[in-house]
Design a protein around this nucleic acid. Structure first.
Length: 331
RNA sequence: GGAUGGGUAUGCCUAGCGGCGAGGGCAGCGGACUGUAAAUCCGUCACAGAGAAACACCGCAGGUUCGAUUCCUGCCCCAUCCA
């Protein structure tokens, strides 16, 4: 670990709160860029990824290997067992804590990962109300099965017409969440969202979205899934299954896991599972791009605009210096 | 050479068995998203058009019919089987 050199003033870091977000659709090559970038700017990496938090889920989540980290500290990797539940609020808490600690060390936090929602939660410091009662949701889930989604949607329309209007009647999960929010907090979710949406980021940030032509990206996804299988994805999932992991767990909803689980259960052939993983991963990449497009203050970085990784890196570093570092080192 | 089954819209699979300007699925594309987010959900997907006017390759060409994607004939492809 040669990450001790501290060129930034800790107090100033806490005050200016610099933050780099480095993201992009799955398989664009975030990981490789992030490490080199971190080294160049004395950064530490915080993974904004809903699956890489789980231990024992390395291949399928495309987790960075220790030897690839090159001495750069990585946070929020391997912090939970696959049986445990993870969600945005938890992520936000942990990420915020990590950010403060990184400032203490005189370094710059770099949020890397493809979960846009997680990034948003820390970037705009969305406040989540304290909710511990899980029985409400369970009850609503039961009601959804017994009385149907339409019923719940109608119920939601009574207490929170705005949200009911916004959520499609088929979207069970989000209808349940909206109802749960109302029951637990006593006021409509739409009201909460309205105030949260106004928030300015407490950070001095740059939000980079790495991208490349769709067909190239899809080709890369195809190759990566094949590589995962060659690396032993099936035995990774087998081990998890033996450990007691089942499809209904949050962790097992990850791409590659649920499909291989189906294969292991004899629901489909391995070939079918692999095809599904590739297809779903493409869909996922697309959804990620939709998310980033909607995000306001992002800087799109097209890989094609650069001759090679070094050039891309040089750009990122120059951009970072221009927007953030100068503010940090000026007296 | 013979037998049988098929060819359905800019990609793939499939419904259709006389009123079809043609139903469904997939892929693709677009979108939503504030405690499951690698989740969940929505839209679009031949051309034309809010009009009684005109305009259409359901393999191709004819025929029957008021009317054919649907029936008949010939031809061209494809698949499997028999020679």
């Amino acid at each position: 670990m040669n990450f001790q050199n501290q060129i930034y003033d800790t107090e100033k870091l806490h005050k200016l709160r610099p933050l780099v977000v480095l993201t992009g659709p799955t398989a664009v090559g975030k990981t490789a860029v992030s490490v080199a970038f971190a080294k160049a700017i004395r950064g530490e990496i915080i993974s904004a990824d809903s699956m890489q938090v789980y231990r024992g889920m390395d291949i399928g989540s495309a987790k960075i290997r220790k030897d690839e980290m090159d001495g750069v500290p990585h946070h929020l990797l391997d912090i939970l067992e696959p049986e445990e539940i993870f969600n945005v609020m938890l992520f936000q808490q942990l990420a915020k804590k990590a950010i403060e600690e990184i400032y203490d060390r005189g370094h710059i936090p770099i949020l890397t990962g493809g979960t846009g929602f997680y990034i948003q939660s820390v970037l705009y410091d969305i406040s989540f109300t304290e909710e511990t009662d899980t029985s409400v949701r369970e009850q609503l889930e039961q009601e959804a099965i017994q009385k149907g989604v339409e019923y719940l949607h109608a119920e939601l329309a009574k207490v929170d017409p705005v949200t009911a209007e916004n959520i499609h009647a088929n979207n069970v999960k989000r209808i349940i969440r909206a109802l749960e929010f109302y029951k637990l907090n006593g006021y409509p979710l739409s009201q909460h969202n309205e105030t949260e949406r106004q928030k300015e980021s407490p950070y001095l940030f740059r939000y980079y979205v790495l991208n490349e032509p769709r067909d190239v990206l899809y080709g890369r996804i195809e190759k990566r899934v094949d590589q995962m299988l060659a690396d032993g994805l099936v035995s990774e999932v087998e081990a998890l299954k033996e450990k007691g992991c089942t499809r209904d767990m949050v962790s097992m909803q990850g791409l590659g896991y649920k499909e291989i689980l189906d294969y292991l259960a004899g629901i489909c052939t391995l070939e079918e599972a692999v095809e599904t993983i590739k297809k779903e991963t493409r869909h996922f990449a697309k959804r990620q791009l939709t998310w980033f497009r909607r995000e306001k203050e992002v800087s799109w970085v097209e890989k094609n605009d650069f001759a090679n990784t070094e050039a891309l890196l040089a750009f990122l570093i120059a951009d970072f210096k221009k927007h953030i570092e100068t503010k940090l080192i000026e007296k």
